[in-house]
Each structure stands twice: as structure tokens, then as C-alpha cells.
Design a protein around this nucleic acid. Structure first.
Lengths: 218, 218, 218, 218
DNA sequence: CATGAATGAGCCTTCATTCAT
DNA sequence: GATGAATGAAGGCTCATTCAT
């Protein structure tokens, strides 16, 4: 899926890049504080350091700002994750370490993620797919890591279960941000990470000490 | 925590109940479609079947509608969950069946949950705690079920892990709603439920067929 | 000029009288506090001790309440003044004592007078004349007292000057109320009264101690 | 007391001055006709010659318009009065001529004064003091003129009486505006002026033709 | 007669967007 | 390219008035 283009009146590409950087930086900070809808374009322009007129030289509508913000955040997270994954082989340790890395990124980019998470739904039917697509790509990365891990460790798992686990990992990373109001009260980041990894790997059945030898479902 | 009261000019309690029902029903459907901010009070009134003047006989501000909606949804989910849990003993089967029940409720109330999930953040600093508190109560229910299950099955688990698992279950239920755009593409409800239960119970390590006998972390 | 009739749906004249009493009393207190425009009909009804529906059984529009209030106040002031004047002969002492009496009434009815003074202009073009007429009648009373006094004291004064003086007295009485924010800071009521009487009677030229024997104007 | 600042979004001070001039002019004319409360902000904008949006670039609330109007009127009256007084020595003639001047200004600015007089009470508790303060300053000017006059003419008068007389002059000037509905029926401006001066200077006791040689009070 | 729920016109204010300079 | 004044559609909310019970 091609990148959705946001129209700018200005021609100088270098300038566009620069101005949009300022814009996104300011917008994230404002959206974090008051949300997309409660933030005005004037505020965005001011926070970015230029006039409202100039703002509109680089976007067409307010929603463009939101799109640009979401796009940027996904790109950053995605890139960092990709780099990390490129360096790994594909065993269980790799998976764990990918998860650790991802969770830590999510911790660092907490504000951005929270913003994106809460405001993405305000994107128009037109822009949303582009953003969701990036999300899908990230989930797919985890699927691949899990798949590699399965192979390496000789574990077999249905494709659906792999997908599901990838989704869970992905959401649990975001969770650390969007449920911080409660999680940060009870967990340090590292404890959260190791706790989730533990559950992911073993589930309820830590070890063999199960009563009657079987935990079969249904 | 006492219930936050939303002021109504009208005295008749029965009428208040009735009108607020209409209002909430209409609001949920509108919020689902266009979000809280893009929905006007006039639209809410119209959808509810009365005039804008009447709407404001039963609330004070637009935000009250959102609070009422969130409050109602949590109450409904919470009540249904509580009823279900009251009927169960406390073994693993109970836990699974509670999860199944919860996920099915979340499926039924998909729209409501999605709305609440995306819009709750628009609640004022004043109203938010009341809503979050209800969420906490629901998470606590799951904690208790898990704890009972552990005892019954003779499994031991750290308190923190229990909390974490409860959070995961809770969020995975919501996930079915707020990530429907992708999950429903790949899963039937029942498949999703059984898949999640499977991961929850066994994690990655389905059975004993692990390569070198150990999957210990770190 | 006939009394302007305010329509009431209710027939029982005694009841009308009673309800309007309650209404006026409540309204004065509210108008005093927040002015006519900032007072709602609901508040008036509540303060009067009955429902909004009942209020509208005794008036047709909100403005009727204002008219009723103004009418009532003028009647009360007018009646008391008339009584007092009836008892007096017509010399200078009578004039002074009428002024004293009037100023004291204005002090007692300060709130009412203030209300009427500030809100009368909100009366419709229809109702205003009736109220202004009562004011004129009161000014005329003073004119008569002054005229009597002139005759009795053997002073001659042009008719226009008499009118002017009557207006001045009338306005100075109201002044005690509507400029209370400053006057009450510097004057006790009695000092104000005697001060004004002194100026009224002697003007600038207290006694004979004028420099060069003449203070003729122009 | 510092000037209360009314916030404007627009930066250009020259433009602010110009737009506010238009605004005030339009507002006075509307307030005169229908009062502050019955005038809508849209009407003010239209009368001023720009859009509602533009109006709000130069004020924050409707009440700001009222404040601006009152402020402007007091400034104009105050300035003109000050200029006049600066040119005078301080004898009786000066006083008379100051009064004449003041009354004529009040005649010219009749509409403005009427508006201010009737609507000032609608100012918030916050803004009112600034306006009342200007009024006090004007009264103080008259006090000074009277005091000078007393000295020059060798008349002695208690300080309180001077204050009172200053208030009377001030209110009588306004009276010409706010009681025009009756005064203009019976007086030409010049007749009103000379009549009031006459009463002010001599009071009731024009000359010596008093019956029994004494008009002592009490 | 009394009540109070219902109505909707209309008000104040905001803010995304444009465009002349 | 940059600026910021101007615009007006649209939104939240109020409140005088009506009318069925």
C-alpha cells in the first residue's frame, strides 16, 4: 500500500520535511495533553513555532495533522522493531528478546502511543486504512518471529494460534501505555515485561505440579 | 466509591430512568458511528426521540451523556459477569467458563464496549475515576476467579502474575471489540475464545514436546 | 390614565391578589440580586412558592411581572407620600418635612427603588407610560408642596423653577438609593437629608458673608 | 486604578483601536434602542460592519463590549471636562461656566450617557469598579471647582456640603439625559442649565423678600 | 386551579479555513 | 513563503411559554 500523500502548497521538499517535523512534535505534545478534538489548529501552529497561515501551507485539513502524527509514530516504532528483529536468529530467546525490546520501545514512546491509540479512530475512512496497515505489518513481524521460534524449538502450533499470540503481544505492549493508570501502580516496567513473558510462555501451567495429571480443556 | 450523580431537572424518577434509557441507546449508536466529539447534542436528542430542550432536562452537559453511557455499559457487563461468577465453584473449568461467558458478553455488547473504550478518555478529570473504578472491580473479579482456580487445582502463582493474567483476560475481551477490524477477519468468536483460553492455560508450551526439556526464561 | 390590566386565567380575584403578592415579593428580591434579565421565570415561581405553571396562570409574559413590580412600588411610595402631604399645611417647614419623609421612605424602600430604577426601562413601549405616569404624579405632588410653600413664605419663583426643583428633590431621593455605593460611604441618612435640604434652601450662598455684596449670575 | 484590559486576539494596535471604535459606535446605537440584554452579539457585529467572528477577535465576551462602551464614554466626558476646567481660574463664574460646559457635553452625548447609565449595572462585579472609579474622578473634579470657588468668593462651606453639591451637579447633568422623556418636554437645554444654576446658587431664597426675616431650618 | 414535563427558537461563542498583503 | 485578520457555519446550552394530566 502506497503512502498516502498529504498535499502541501510549498514546493521545497526539504522545507516540507522540516516544517512537518515541527508540526508533528508540537501536535503530539498537544494531543497527549488534550486530545485531537480539543486541540485547535492555532495551538498546533503556535506549538510548532509558526503562524496559522504557514500551517496551512503544509497541510490541507486539521485531520492531515493527525494522519501525519500517526504515520510518524508507526514508522518510528516499526523501524526500531525491524532493526532489532533483523539482528536475531529465530529461537525462543530471540522471541523473548524481541518482546523485551518492543515493550521497552512502547515504554519510551508511551505518550506517542497513547495519542495514536486514542485518536487514530478520528482519522477519516480515507486515511485509516493506511495507518491500520502499518499496524498489521508490525503484527506480522511478531508472527514471523513466533513462527521462527516454533521451528527452532520444535514446537508446533496452529497458524491461527500464532496470529493470536502475535496480536496479544502487540496489544500487551500498547497496554503498558494505555492502561498505565493502573499497571504502573502495581508494576515496574521490567517486572511487567518478565511477567508477561512468563505468562506467554507457560500460561497457567507453570511446571508439572498439576493435580490430576491433566489440564486438558473442555 | 459512591455513584456520581448526574443532575436532572425533572423530578419523576421513573421518567428519568426511561428518558435516560432512550438517551443512552441513541447516544451509543451515534457515538459508535461518529464518535463523541462529532456527535451533536441535537443529534442525541433526536435519536433519543425528544427535543433538545428535553434532553437538557435530564442532563447538564454533553459530557453527562458520555458518563451515563460509560456508567451504564460497565454496570451491565459487571452485573452479568457477577451473576455468572456467583454460580461457579472455583476450579479451572470455572475459570474457562467465566472467560467464555465474558468474551461472549463482550461480543454481544461490542458496539457499546467499542464506544466506551474509545471515548472514555473524553470524560472530565472529575468523572473518569468513577468509571475506571468499575473497570478495576471487574478486573478484581477475574483475579478472584483465578485465585480460586489456583487453589482448587493446586497450582501456585505469584500474586502479581494473577493480577497480570486478570488484566490480560479483561483486555483480550475488549480486544475482540476494538480490534474487530482485523480479528473478525481471521476468527469466529468461538475460535477466538478457545484460542485465547488455550494460550492462557498453556502458553507457548503445548505439552511436553519441547526440544531440550527446558523452556525456562532468562 | 387607567390602570393597565394584566391578564390572569384564574377568575378568583382574591386569589389573584394573593398570588401576585407572593410573586412580586419574590421578584423584587430576585431582581434586586440579579436584575430582571438574569432572573428566570422559574426562579420567580420558586421564590413565590408555586410552580412555573401556576405562575403563568396569573400573568401572560415575564414582562408582566416587571410591570406588576414597578406598579406596586410606585403605588406604595406614592400612597405613603400622599398621606404625609395631606397632613401638612403649606409652609417651608412642611416642605422640609415632606422632603425628610420622602427621603426616609426612599431609604426604607431602597431595594425596591433600585430595582425599579434600573429595570423600568425594560418595560415594553406599551407598559412604560403607565409607570412613568405614576412618577409624574409624584413629581407633581412636590411641585404642589413647593408652590404652597412659596405662597406661604411670600417667595416668588417661576413655574419652571418650581418644576425643576420638584424634579431635583425627586431624583435626589432616588439618588440615595442608586448611588448608595458612594453616598453611604460618606453620609448617614440624616446627614444626607439635612445636607440636601440646606442646599435646596440656600444654595451656595449661605447667609450674607459674600465678598462684594453681589453674587448675581452672568 | 489601572485600566482593565480587554483581550484581543489581533495584534495590530492601530487596528484594534479602529475596530473597537466601530464596535462601540454600533453598540451604543443598539443599546440605546433595545438595551444591552436585548441586543445580540450578531447585531453588534453587523452594526459595526464586520462578521461575528471578527467581533470576537477583539473581545472575549459580550460583556466586554459593554465595558468598552462605558469606559469610552467616561473617558470622553472626563477628558472634555478636564480640558475645560484647566482653562479656568476658580471663582463663581468658573463654576457656572464649568457646569454649563458639562451640561452641554451631557446633552451632546445624551445617547451614550443614557446607555451607560442604564446598562452599567450589567457589568460584572469584576469590571464595575473600574467604571465607578471614573465616575468618582469626575465628581472629584467638581468638588475641586467648588472648593476653588468658595475660596475665591470668600464663602465657607462644610466639606460634606461640597461633596454633596458635586454629586448633585453630576447627577443633574445625567438627569438631562435619563429623564429626557419629561424634561425635554418642559425645558430647552439652555433654560434647563440656567434654571439649575440658579437653584444651585441661590436655592429657594432668591433675594431678600423673605417674610419674617428668617428661613432657618429645623 | 395546580403541576411540571416538553418544546424549540435563539443566544453566545469557537474554530477550521481562506486570502490579501 | 509567511503572516494573521477575516469569515461564518455550527455547536452547546438556556429559558419563556404551553398544555396534558
Amino acid at each position: 500500500m502506497k503512502k498516502r500523500q498529504v498535499h502541501a502548497s510549498v514546493k521545497d521538499e526539504r522545507l516540507i520535511e522540516k516544517r512537518r517535523d515541527q508540526m508533528i512534535k508540537g501536535a503530539v505534545s498537544l494531543f497527549k495533553e488534550k486530545g485531537f478534538h480539543r486541540t485547535t489548529t492555532r495551538e498546533i501552529a503556535k506549538e510548532a513555532g509558526f503562524s496559522i497561515g504557514t500551517l496551512y501551507e503544509y497541510i490541507r485539513t486539521k485531520e492531515d495533522v493527525l494522519y501525519l502524527v500517526c504515520d510518524r509514530i508507526y514508522d518510528q516504532v516499526g523501524e526500531r522493531l525491524q532493526e532489532e528483529l533483523d539482528m536475531k536468529r529465530g529461537n525462543l530467546e530471540s522471541l523473548k528478546s524481541a518482546i523485551r525490546y518492543y515493550f521497552r520501545v512502547m515504554d519510551e514512546m508511551q505518550d506517542e502511543v497513547l495519542v495514536m491509540y486514542q485518536e487514530a479512530k478520528s482519522l477519516s475512512k480515507d486515511a485509516l486504512p493506511y495507518v491500520l496497515n502499518k499496524e498489521l505489518a508490525m503484527v506480522a513481524m511478531f508472527e514471523q518471529v513466533i513462527r521462527n521460534c516454533m521451528t527452532a524449538e520444535g514446537i508446533s502450533m496452529k497458524e491461527q494460534q500464532i496470529q493470536l499470540m502475535a496480536h496479544n503481544i502487540f496489544v500487551q505492549g500498547q497496554m503498558w501505555g494505555f492502561r498505565r493508570w493502573v499497571l504502573h501502580r502495581h508494576f515496574e516496567l521490567e517486572a511487567y515485561i518478565e511477567g508477561q513473558i512468563e505468562l506467554l510462555v507457560h500460561g497457567l501451567t507453570k511446571g508439572e505440579n498439576v493435580k490430576n495429571g491433566s489440564l486438558s480443556s473442555n
